[in-house]
Structure formats: C-alpha cells, structure tokens
C-alpha cells in the first residue's frame, strides 16, 4: 500500500502476479479511504487479511500527513498479524510503473512535494536508482535533468522545467508489490518501514514574549 502521493493505493500480490488492486486519487482523504480499499482488494481476491505473509508500504518521500496513514497502518497490521513489514521508496515504485508503461533508459521521476517543490530521483533504468531522493524547486533541477523523460505528477505539474513529462502520474500499489516481490524473491533487503520526510518539521518557535505595556 502507498499513501505518499495524492493516490491511496492498495494491491495484493501472490508472489507471481498482482491479484487485486485499488487506486483512488484524493489528497485529502487518505485516512478514510485506505482501510476500505484494503477491505475491497482482499474481498476481490477472496482472501482474508490473516493470509497475508508480508506487508509492503511506500515510505515516501511524500507530504507527511498522508504518508503517515500508510506507514502506521502497515506497522499496525504487522504487529497484529505478526508478519514482517517492509518499506519501498515511493519514487522507486513509480519508476518501476514507468518502466511497465514503456519508459526505458535513463529517466527521472518527480512527485508533487507542494510548496512549489518536487520530490525526485534519477534512474538508470526502471529498477536502478542513481542517487538519493531529494526535494527541490523544479527550476533548480531542470538543467541537470534536461533531455531526460520525467515521470510522475511532479513532472506534469511543471512542464516548463520538465518538457518531456510522462505518465504514470501516480504510484500504483500493484507496481510497488511487483517490485517488492521481485526483490524479496531475489533475497534483496527492502527498506525499514520508516518515513522519508526529506524536510525538517516546520517548528514555529513562538516569538519572544511580547511586551504588552506601551512604552
């Protein structure tokens, strides 16, 4: 499951293929949509939650409030069912989905980080990220990504910086699950299920005590 972008997406993978998948785009309702989506996906597959042997969750980067919904839900499932919980970088899942959609060769992915910034990373191919995910203003990275296709809503939002913007716009849990299942089968370690915030919290230090007596 992933809630790091405006999409609330859940999929069930049986080790070979995606059995059922749900994706809804609603940036303000992650909290309400996620559990019903889990329920729908399981019902469609005719499987109960306690049959699930591994939980994989997108760790972002993504706007925090929504991101945490997926992470805490996954962690709680893991604890309640005594199954392992793994993290996948949301941008990696988007890159994998871009590969499924036909993007090949070097490219980048970008998601909306709000505040006129994007979360982004560069890929050698859909399975190989080069460098760490970052958050930047589109104009500041346009030059280094010039000539590269850029997949994701972050690219589509800023066509001036990213003239070769591509779909898919949002991450899909099916792609994430396929990527994770492949890595687990290959014995590769996934990430811990901890958030990639990439920004420090906005900590408004209250202004120094204001003098109320007129001077």
């Amino acid at each position: 499951m992933d809630t790091a972008t405006p999409a609330v997406t859940v999929a069930l993978h049986d080790g070979t293929r995606v059995v059922a998948e749900s994706g809804q785009v609603d940036a303000r309702r992650h909290g309400e949509l996620l559990l019903p989506a889990v329920d729908r996906v399981l019902a469609e597959a005719g499987v109960k939650l306690d049959a699930v042997t591994e939980v994989v969750v997108g760790v972002g980067p993504g706007p925090y409030t929504g991101l945490r919904v997926g992470l805490v839900t996954a962690a709680t499932f893991g604890s309640a069912l005594s199954v392992p919980v793994h993290g996948i970088c949301t941008l990696d899942a988007l890159a994998y989905a871009a590969g499924q959609a036909g993007v090949a060769g070097p490219f980048a992915v970008a998601t909306d980080a709000r505040r006129k910034e994007v979360y982004w990373a560069r890929y050698e191919d859909p399975l190989t990220r080069t460098g760490e995910p970052a958050v930047d203003r589109p104009a500041d990275i346009a030059e280094q990504l010039a000539g590269l296709p850029v997949a994701g809503a972050g690219a589509v939002l800023y066509p001036e910086a990213f003239p070769d913007a591509r779909g898919p716009e949002h991450v899909a849990a099916g792609a994430m699950a396929s990527l994770a299942a492949g890595r687990l089968a290959a014995g590769e370690a996934l990430l811990p299920p901890q958030p990639l915030y990439l920004r420090r919290p906005d900590a408004q230090v209250p202004k120094n005590y204001k003098v109320v007596t007129p001077k």
């Binding site: 909290g31 996620l34 559990l35 889990v38 329920d39 939650l49 306690d50 925090y64 409030t65 945490r68 919904v69 805490v72 839900t73 996954a74 962690a75 709680t76 499932f77 604890s79 309640a80 069912l81």
Partner: peptide, 19 residues
C-alpha cells in the same frame, strides 16, 4: 490536532480490522 489524531485513528482502524 488533525495530523496527530490521524495517526491514532489509522492505527486503531488497522488494529480493529486485523483482529
């Protein structure tokens, strides 16, 4: 606090659903 509440509500829903 909205963001704080959401963490607890999400956890409670997941726990209730899983069990």
């Amino acid at each position: 606090l909205a963001g704080a509440l959401l963490v607890g509500v999400s956890a409670a829903k997941a726990y209730a659903y899983a069990l």
